[in-house]
Design a protein around this nucleic acid. Structure first.
Lengths: 225, 225
DNA sequence: AATACTTATAGTCATAATGACCATAAGTAT
DNA sequence: ATACTTATGGTCATTATGACTATAAGTATT
């Protein structure tokens, strides 16, 4: 398979993970010119696969993470972005619940690890630029589509949902106003249950309303937080 | 220059034009497998230029249109999008006032022409997909940044500005409400002059306020129309 | 048992924005 | 003089927003 490789085109993936806080998945290069360095999971595209397919394959090979819906960012094509030859790379990103996946270093990766966003080490090539571009995309995406369906447990509290938004958008929100907004969208449904084992007043548990969730996802909207 | 070409990577440009209505610039292929067909202006990237630079060079060679700020859409990379070999293309787009430019067919183009959006002929490869993606991008861009500075004459009426938005967004707007919104943003300045040679009540003429225009461009906003 | 915390949740209130209108103004065309 | 056309000024009910205040319901501490 790896024989028919497009020499000057690569893929780089920005995999954001969330549980409690926003993280990004990096791999340690086990060979090549960046051996020992942490970088975005990336690799070469073959002639027989689409870009989307290549992104998924590469991510799986390096990290063991499979079957994600990866969204393309754009192509990064500065002349000198790669040191040894001219390479244009196509960026992809997605956001997942990191605890849902077992990450396993594979292929040319000697290690894989989630990094909290403010602990990301220095990245090679233009990976800083790609990561920062991806973060901007993520933020704007979050305001145009509901998120959380895959990121929160089945049953969650309003505060958990609020923390999710606060982590991604990196802002603080007013609790009563956030409730009002979210409840007003009919996006989530009161389950009539409460948390337990918490050392304070227990909050109601909610779940997403599948139908409303899908509808909001397709029709788009603007979430003004 | 054209010697060092990346074999499997191309550029395609969606140049939207506006005066009275929204148009798109197409070139007629003068050679190659699509000879005689109208298509998006596109070509090959050399090893010595960035993607952005390639887009500008190619557009200039084919159409004579020079020095635009082209914005990248994304990379289009289906396996079979190009008939003779695997080619990934990077899409670019922009919006200009078409009457400001003299289009001249050059290089491998035998003709260049503006097409009204509903008169676009059948396009080869995946150019329909690229065009439609570009249109979506344009629409969403228009809601997040002010436009019109390069598209309208120095002095313009509110109706001209409204028509611009209506053309691009392909919607109808309420006149009084549109005035209120735009005037409220302080984006445009009353020149104290009026139209003449119109067969109805003359409208006030306005110009853009450079400072507010730039500020809105940088800080982003959401224009809810 | 009382009190201090913590988080949940309900509600207020002034202000601003929105969409759907109506009415009048100021011209030209007939 | 009247009919049209487009411009422009307003109203008005409804909804959204941000900044708060207040109370509820638990646990933890003394």
């Amino acid at each position: 398979m790896a024989e028919h490789i497009m020499e000057d085109l690569s893929i780089d993936c920005v995999i954001f993970g969330f549980t409690d806080e926003l993280k990004v998945l990096l791999v340690k290069h086990g060979e090549g010119i960046s051996k020992g360095k942490w970088a975005l999971p990336g690799g070469w595209i073959t002639y027989e696969e689409s870009l989307d397919a290549a992104a998924n394959r590469i991510l799986y090979l390096l990290t063991g993470v499979n079957n994600l819906f990866l969204e393309q960012l754009k192509a990064f094509g500065s002349v000198d972005r790669f040191p040894t030859k001219r390479v244009v790379t196509v960026g992809y990103y997605t956001l997942i619940k990191d605890t849902d996946y077992d990450v396993v270093a594979g292929y040319t990766a000697s290690d894989v690890q989630w990094f909290s966003l403010d602990e990301v080490p220095e990245l090679p090539y233009d990976h800083d630029e790609i990561l920062s571009y991806a973060l901007d995309q993520l933020k704007s995406k979050v305001k145009q589509e509901p998120i959380g369906f895959n990121l929160l447990p089945e049953k969650f509290t309003l505060l958990q949902l609020q923390n999710l938004y606060e982590s991604i958008l990196q802002i603080k929100l007013d609790k009563p106003n956030f409730r009002r907004k979210i409840l007003g969208m009919k996006l989530i449904v009161d389950l009539g249950e409460k948390q337990n084992n918490v050392s304070h007043r227990a909050a109601k548990l909610y779940k997403f309303d599948q139908e409303v969730y899908q509808a909001l996802k397709e029709h788009k909207f603007v979430l003004d937080l």
